[in-house]
Design a binder for these strands. Structure first.
Lengths: 216, 216, 216, 216
DNA sequence: CATGAATGAGCTTTCATTCAT
DNA sequence: TATGAATGAAAGCTCATTCAT
């Protein structure tokens, strides 16, 4: 895992068998990551647990890193899509509604699977350095919030600056990340969800800081 | 990094020379981590850059992990102490004052040294799994805020629950962490600091969520 | 290239299509060898470049080595045939004539195709160990010279011993080999050709060494 | 053995033990090369036969190729030095004397050790592409001959052009190379040596070709 | 105490070859 | 017959750690 920025899969699967192989590899990688940690994630182990030969692994992934990246991308897209879908079908009536919906969905997505702990930690550390196409979750959430801040009367007072959006999204996801990674039972606590909402909504409704300062 | 769960240092340094050696090793490790990343951090390289033999390194640290842990702890303590000191000498007159002071100090601590980027990422991923004594920074900040929320009139309205403190501290540090790790120039932007303050202060002053709900 | 000592082709091509396939495979191998070197010559790459599946390659060649051997043999036969043909049609009038003709043809055969460099090197290293049927070029040349030394008056003085033939042929081909393999532009230099002729003709005309010694 | 032009040793040995290790590695490599061929030359096998760990091998050689290169260089220097020494102490009285001395020494150097067969083949194929500092043998021989062609009356008639030297040295070494590589008993035959001398001396004494042509 | 040579388990990756489809 | 997914032995190489000097 030295350099090699290659990220794509080595070959497109043309037979159904191949698709199953890829899926098995990713699932095996996820399991090992979860149960034994990143250091235990060796290509041999992944192939073994996936029930395929090591050669097959390398037929579809150019190197170990590519497996990790694919795994992370899959996870991220799954969560991102879920958030978007839930929001779309819940038809929020207010900005507050929407924020509660987003946070609730995020928590649901990260919660049940304590099994995803290591993966989330990895996502945090890997995504940054190596995968710039990977900010989907954050960007999607930021987009949703920004849209809401324009569309709904309760937030309309002040449009969201880029920096505000950055702070809000990173703060909320940062807190969730901590909860997941620190393995805290707190992530199942309704009060945690409530406080997250309070943090977000309070921030979105608060008078503009600079405006406030100038006004003072 | 195979076996050996030992984590403490192998021997107490009794001579000034020993202290200097340890310091040189940690500094070398920090430099390598920063300039070349975690993968490049090998014991041989650390010893070499520190100007000591590999044998000497193992005289002071039982294994590679111990070096990393010591490095992280050093960094964390430095930042924690700085926050505490700045607050102590600034004698805040209000809760808002104190929060602004804490955030400002945190940003100063993380900011100038873009060189600390990799270290911060490491702290995040390592602290959780391997060092349970390591939450000092977070705990210290949480303690400060909690104390303030009791001491100062502007926050007095509602004492900070454990969960609230958790959310607040993780949110703020999470946003800063993002800024540092994503290498964003945003960390130098005054507006970023302002928004962080707005987030924290707004949260601390907002009416209690559950109270509000009950009241409704 | 593990086991399987089989060296012959697996099946006789009975259809024109098969011949074309074999030709495509050999041509692909030659190209890869030339452009990327021996290490890059993998069966998968050969099949790919030849436009056939890896399975098909193994239908015509029992293993990778057989491909190489076929390639070398093809090359060798081509050059050998060319030398023979040129000589036959030039109807040399003297031994010197014939020698000049042979050397000239050899140089023409090896020259234009700097592309054949890697192939020549291969021929040199492979032919020895693995292909004992492969001395055709050398033998053909040796035969030509030997015949000339008997047929033409200018060489008639002394019949060529086996060892003399060996020395002469290896010397001339060795010098050409060096020129090709070392990638020297020398192979295009007319003086090079002239000197080779001088070497060969001088040797063939010189008084017998042992005779000379005895005479002395 | 992909790229990596590194050729030097990884670290200078500072302890006597290290020198012995290096020697053992080279000797083991030579043996394996000889008895089992180039394909059998794996780093593990070399280390094993040398009685050292694989790690030790890589402490002194950056990669497998470096081992080969060191081996070849060692061999080449040994032969080159021997040729030079023998000539120096034999104090040849004529050019013919000197040529006979050189050829005799070369044959002695290559002869007794049928064990050197594979090594010579390797030298031929490797030296060219990868080690440009490696032409010592050829250059040394060429230098000796060139000097002789100027110093001694029997060759004085015509100074040796660069191309003539090239042809002569490659021809002689090419013939010897063939004898060694083809495993022919011919290398032990005194007539072989005699014919080589005849080839070389005849060439050196022959009237200049171009002169001859012009004269005609 | 310091040194650095030695160790070797274990990792990633390649590629010739097979065989079910 | 042609295909290409699957195989897995085996290779090169790294690096944390030990221990004789």
């Amino acid at each position: 895992m030295t350099a090699q920025p290659i990220v794509k899969m080595r070959k497109k699967p043309r037979q159904a068998r191949a698709v199953a192989t890829i899926e098995a590899i990713l699932e095996a990688a996820a399991q090992i990551l979860q149960k034994e940690g990143e250091e235990a994630l060796t290509t041999a182990k992944v192939a073994d647990r996936a029930g395929v030969s090591i050669g097959s692994l390398y037929q579809y992934f150019p190197n170990k890193e590519a497996v990790l990246l694919a795994l992370i991308r899959r996870e991220r897209e799954a969560i991102g899509a879920e958030v978007a879908r839930k929001i779309a079908e819940s038809e929020p009536k207010s900005g507050e509604d929407l924020v509660r919906g987003v946070i609730s969905t995020l928590l649901v997505a990260f919660r049940p699977r304590r099994r995803r702990r290591k993966l989330v930690a990895l996502m945090a550390s890997l995504s940054v350095d190596r995968d710039n196409s990977g900010l989907e979750l954050r960007d999607r959430v930021a987009y949703l919030i920004a849209a809401a801040s324009r569309r709904f009367p309760d937030f309309a007072a002040r449009p969201l600056s880029d920096i505000s959006a950055y702070v809000l999204v990173r703060a909320v996801l940062g807190a969730i990340r901590s909860a997941v990674v620190e393995n805290a039972k707190i992530i199942d606590d309704p009060e945690f969800e409530e406080e997250l909402c309070r943090l977000a909504i309070g921030y979105l409704k608060a008078p503009d800081a600079s405006a406030a300062r100038k006004g003072a």
